[in-house]
Design a protein around this nucleic acid. Structure first.
Lengths: 208, 208
DNA sequence: CCGGCTAAAAATGTATACATTTTCAGCCAG
DNA sequence: CTGGCTGAAAATGTATACATTTTTAGCCGG
């Protein structure tokens, strides 16, 4: 695993205090590499929203802003249905099958940790989205998801939300299999909206 | 002006043939710097869609894909009204005034080249959007705009479209000044849709 | 005691040098 | 002649060394 992923993991775990500037030399020493790869990794993480420039004081971890999470989900809510709408005509049995396999894996493994669950969840969505063959749309949506990861973090979603979410996944797949594109897109929009509401609520609870 | 901007200019002007891999050493020599800043600039340009990885053959200029432009405008069409909707309540006289100044500058200088016109145009929009104080939304919208720049390039928009566009800008500002948020957002959506249609048509004409 | 200036220290940006990976021309076996 | 191997060449990744910028601690004048 390369430096970028290691740093991202440490950021997810809150290893760096928000607001305090990150020093290249310090990180380089900690991971036993020179500053060049550190610069590369930091630049990428900045582009993905994990870091921000604090004036000219270098890069720092931005504090969690519930409103940012709200906006990220707002955007996903509007964009992902567009992607699904374009994917729907291309969804053949094989793709639907792969998506269903992912759902089954989630259903059957009750002990998946939050991180693995999140990965599977996103893989389910991308399996469908990829079929749209719309690189630009896909890329933007993926980037929004990456930014959301910062907020999802390692928090444990409530179990009952997880089961609600899974139900929606299955319903979505059923609708798509039947070719009911519009209802599927509407469901997806609600699905994302619900996830966003829950996340923002969690964040507010934790902060308030 | 730093390397990033120089490279972007050269990319806009089609200085590098699409598909052929860009070599760090070559660029470094051409601009008289070492490879390190070249790497930084290339990484950033890649993140913004100006370059893409061609397998393991390094970075290359992606060919223009009219569908990508279509998708970019589709997304902007859905996102920018959200931003304007949130900006509307915060639009005071000063901001409206600044926006109107930009429009006036565009109206009064008939000899602005396409590049300057595009810059002013975008500045007008961001003047309004910034008032929303929604960094995440703003950032994504800005990024989409940056990706669009690749397609707008240096093409001369027809003069009659330019005047139509300006009319819409003025109408938009009037609506906002009167506090008619919803009609303003609807107009913005149409404004972007029209720009997108025209651009895609131009691209198709050039290619077909 | 406070605010601004100065110089040292620290951090980042850049160049050069080296290591590793990838590409490709040329050759050999089939 | 074709297809795959091999080694040289080239390109990228990384480390070290140097340059430039930024920060900050300390001092001086008010």
């Amino acid at each position: 695993m390369d430096l970028y992923h290691q740093l991202k993991l440490d950021l997810q775990r809150g290893h760096f205090a928000p607001g305090t500037p990150l020093k290249q030399a310090e990180i380089a020493k900690r991971y036993g590499v020179s500053r060049i790869p550190v610069r590369d990794a930091l630049a990428r993480l900045k582009a993905e929203g994990w870091l921000c420039t604090h004036g000219k004081r270098g890069l720092a971890v931005p504090a969690l802003a519930p409103q940012e999470a709200e906006d990220l989900y707002l955007m996903r809510m509007h964009l992902e249905p567009l992607l699904l709408e374009r994917a729907a005509p291309n969804l053949n049995g094989e793709i639907i099958g792969r998506a269903r396999d992912i759902l089954d894996a989630m259903d059957k493994n009750p002990v998946l940790d939050a991180s693995a669950l999140g990965q599977h969840n996103w893989q389910f969505h991308t399996t469908l989205y990829r079929a749209a063959e719309r690189p630009a749309l896909f890329h933007t949506v993926e980037q929004l998801q990456r930014q959301c990861e910062r907020y999802i973090g390692y928090q444990n979603r409530t179990l009952d939300y997880q089961s609600t979410s899974q139900e929606e996944h299955h319903r979505l797949l059923d609708l798509l299999q039947q070719g009911d594109c519009a209802p599927a897109c509407a469901l997806l929009e609600q699905h994302i909206a619900a996830a966003g509401r829950l996340l923002v609520q969690h964040l507010s609870d934790r902060q308030g």
